[in-house]
């Protein structure tokens, strides 16, 4: 069996780990609370992405300097650094929208204890160098922002028929802001990603390994030509 195309696909997924390969939200199941509850508008999603970017970068930077300390001390210092990152991110978020802090509520300071910082940055920083960890951290931020912005835009559209505050349709579906809707929506997104991966792998296998019927058809086509 030839696996050339699927090997290429695997290499692509390895390079884009965190975005497509193992999307941190839809495949790895991390950062879910921030998508399910506060991501009800595109503005909120962008604000969450900015907060995550600062928290992850500060967490990774801190993890590099304290990689030789005990595990429990490292976790504490890394989360403190990422809390500092969240504090810094407030300055940038204010530029997006001043009222967004009310929408995010307790979820903004909670960004400091996000799973990426605690699990990935802390664990990876000990094994890999700063560049590799930073690239991985940034790819997780991009992966998170893709899902957050899609979910946020869809929910905003369903809630008020607008995107980024600009009305585009006359829809009103208040249930879109609820927690259970968030869970169900993310579940369907996750299932779609799994199905898509399976379909792509199947198509690649079929293209690499044509069946006897396909070969016969190709032969006939060549004869007609």
């Amino acid at each position: 069996m030839k696996l050339t195309r699927n090997r290429k696909l695997r290499r692509f997924f390895d390079v884009t780990k965190g975005i497509f390969g193992r999307n941190i939200v839809l495949v790895s199941g991390l950062m879910l609370p921030y998508i399910i509850m506060p991501a009800v508008s595109l503005k909120a999603s962008v604000a969450l992405t900015i907060a995550m970017l600062f928290a992850v970068l500060m967490g990774i930077a801190a993890a590099q300097f304290i990689s030789k300390l005990d595990d429990w001390v490292r976790y504490i210092l890394i989360t403190l650094a990422s809390l500092g990152g969240v504090a810094l991110s407030r300055l940038v978020i204010r530029l997006v929208s001043a009222e967004i802090f009310d929408t995010l509520g307790i979820y903004l300071p909670l960004m400091a204890v996000n799973s990426i910082v605690v699990l990935c940055a802390a664990e990876r920083a000990r094994r890999e160098n700063l560049l590799h960890t930073a690239v991985y951290g940034l790819s997780t931020v991009v992966g998170f922002s893709l899902v957050a912005c899609t979910v946020g835009a869809l929910r905003e559209l369903m809630l008020s028929g607008s995107i980024w505050g600009t009305p585009v349709a006359t829809v009103s579906f208040p249930v879109a802001a609820t927690v259970f809707f968030g869970f169900i929506m993310v579940a369907f997104f996750g299932a779609a990603v799994q199905a898509m991966r399976r379909v792509i792998v199947g198509i690649n296998l079929r293209l690499d390994n044509p069946t006897a019927e396909d070969l016969l058809r190709q032969q006939e086509e060549r004869m007609v030509d």
């Binding site: 790895s28 199941g29 879910l32 609370p33 399910i36 509850m37 909670l110 927690v179 968030g182 869970f183």
Partner: peptide
Amino acid sequence: FSRALGVSR
């Protein structure tokens, strides 16, 4: 179930 907090891998 009400705030989606603590949901992780």
